[in-house]
Design a protein around this nucleic acid. Structure first.
Lengths: 146, 146
DNA sequence: GAACCTGTAATCACAAAGATTACATGATAA
DNA sequence: TTATCATGTAATCTTTGTGATTACAGGTTC
């Protein structure tokens, strides 16, 4: 079980849009080259980031730009934009516990709040991390090692 | 993306083993009836719980028993026993970032620690919840509503 | 209008999850 | 000791989700 690579691709994209904004025309083809994947993957990820008002996209030759400051884009924003975990929740509950069994008919509601608290712990941590943290680290690594 | 239902099945199993220990012979067939799945699924889950020294299994007619007190079995113990998230980690990193791109060759190491901290937040919360919390709640719900 | 970009539908390949059948192995009770 | 019943596990199948790719429609800019 893993959270889709589209999440790390999205963080990569946002970081690259910022890094190359003054030196390159940033397109889905350009980003696909940096990420190492297909331009269609990039465009679907970009579409979701656009829907979440994280980036701005104009067709033609104008390229892509950020809609917010990097320090205002959290991991949680990206995670939600890409719908990494849907409304069903992080945990997959077995669907047919036996309601004729006293444990079977009560186990779901007994676990629900605890499972949610685990998901909340993960998501709350994601709200504390911004893309600026990553972009700053990338720039520092480039400065040191090239 | 969801964590396998084997996790909630395992919690269900452990709770049921405790609940029925004095009134029923608890077998994989009996548990499959309560969970609403196939006995083979139950047996594979039980095998992993046994490997983690959470339950004890004897063949023949003796049934299944807990190897620890419910209050000594955490969600994290069960999660680790079932290998819900393997050594690759919770997040799936895109595998081929372009090393000729300064962002591409540094993005992985720049994100690594942050991604790990998110996974840690989730796992640390799991360490705080025990099966006893669930079993107590199930008994209470049975007492109130049957 | 030419050139270039995004948007998206339609496939395809691959992997993982869950369900199921079948059978070997081991333990217990009579 | 043998019949009975449980677990252990290999093998198969279906379904679902992810990621990759092709193809083309729709906009934008020069």
């Amino acid at each position: 079980m893993q959270i889709t690579s589209r999440f790390t691709i999205a963080v990569h994209i946002i970081t690259a849009i910022d890094y190359f904004k003054d030196s390159e025309t940033v397109t889905s083809n350009f980003l696909a080259g940096s990420v190492g994947t297909n331009p269609v993957i990039i465009r679907t990820v970009m579409g979701k980031l656009k829907d979440a008002s994280i980036i701005e996209i104009s067709q033609g030759k104008s390229g892509i730009a950020l809609a917010k400051k990097l320090s205002d884009i959290t991991f949680y924003d990206v995670y939600k934009a890409l719908d990494c975990v849907d409304e069903a929740g992080l945990f997959h509950f077995h669907e047919e516990p036996n309601i004729d069994c006293p444990v079977g008919r009560n186990i779901h509601s007994a676990m629900e709040a605890e499972l949610q608290s685990i998901q909340d712990a993960m998501e709350n941590r994601m709200k504390e991390i911004t893309i600026a943290d990553i972009a700053d680290d990338v720039r520092e690594k480039i400065r040191i090692a090239g």
